[in-house]
């Protein structure tokens, strides 16, 4: 059954060329999908449209049978609690400890007052600790996040997403600012989250080889258009060249890329 369905999603920033042009695809539960494409091809915009951090101009996005595009503020928050998100720059609160940052993932499940005061239940703390252990951060539980390395920060980011008990995790270039060995650790963790916990993941990537190695399905974007959608086995070098093609004849390219980034 499809967990996520995008129908004719289009996003115009205030330029001529759209950042997303009529994007349609569906993602099944438990799939590990990567989105590849050159910078400015609309990968980030696509991810952000799904949880409406960016509003799509037109089209329909359905998550678990609910049409996200038409939700009011409260219901949107409800949906967002089920969608985790991981970022290239980690986006943690640097001055707070690892456990506090992880527990931030629970805020959406709490009443405003409990969240404001930072009151978490025993079970929530227990669950957070278990996830932190699972990701191998048990030595850093009470350390401040600005003392961590990039790879460790990203694992805190993953823990924050996991503690939400999400059905879907959106990963926005999670390994783009990490060294190769940390990147491998992160990708291994993401793979096992998908396989063992059955969470659906959508990840935007720069590295085609990583996408080929780790993910079940690849979606190629070129200037907001889906130019490839299939298993890694079908991605020949010819198709991959299509994804990254620049087409110098087309005058709109540069404009399109600038607006999308």
């Amino acid at each position: 059954m499809a967990l996520l369905e995008l129908k004719n999603v289009t996003k115009h920033y205030n330029g001529i060329a759209p950042a997303l042009d009529d994007v349609s695809f569906s993602v099944n539960e438990g799939e590990f999908v990567s989105i590849i494409g050159s910078s400015g091809s609309g990968k980030t915009t696509l991810l952000r449209c799904i949880n409406r951090m960016v509003e799509a101009t037109s089209g329909e996005i359905a998550f678990g049978g609910i049409v996200v595009s038409r939700l009011g503020k409260m219901e949107l928050r409800q949906v967002r609690t089920k969608i985790g998100m991981i970022f290239q720059q980690f986006n943690l609160v640097d001055r707070m400890s690892v456990i506090e940052n992880v527990l931030h993932g629970r805020l959406g499940h709490k009443s405003t007052l409990a969240g404001v005061l930072g009151i978490y239940t025993r079970e929530e703390r227990w669950q957070a600790l278990r996830i932190i252990q699972m990701l191998g951060l048990d030595q850093q539980v009470y350390q401040r996040c600005d003392q961590l390395s990039g790879g460790q920060k990203q694992r805190v980011g993953i823990a924050r997403a996991l503690v939400q008990n999400p059905k879907l995790i959106l990963c926005d270039e999670p390994i783009a600012s990490l060294d190769p060995s940390s990147a491998k650790t992160i990708m291994d963790h993401l793979r096992s989250i998908c396989t063992e916990l059955g969470v659906t993941l959508i990840i935007s990537l720069h590295q085609v080889d990583v996408a080929l190695k780790y993910t079940d399905r690849i979606i190629g974007l070129n200037r907001g258009i889906v130019v490839f959608d299939g298993p890694p086995g079908e991605l020949t070098s010819q198709r991959s060249a299509e994804i990254y093609a620049k087409e110098p004849k087309d005058v709109n390219i540069d404009l399109g890329e600038r607006n999308a980034s």
Partner: peptide
């Protein structure tokens, strides 16, 4: 934090 479903007050204080 907004993406986790937290509301404005929670983001401000947390």
């Amino acid at each position: 934090l907004m993406a986790t479903g937290a509301n404005w007050w929670q983001v401000v204080f947390q």
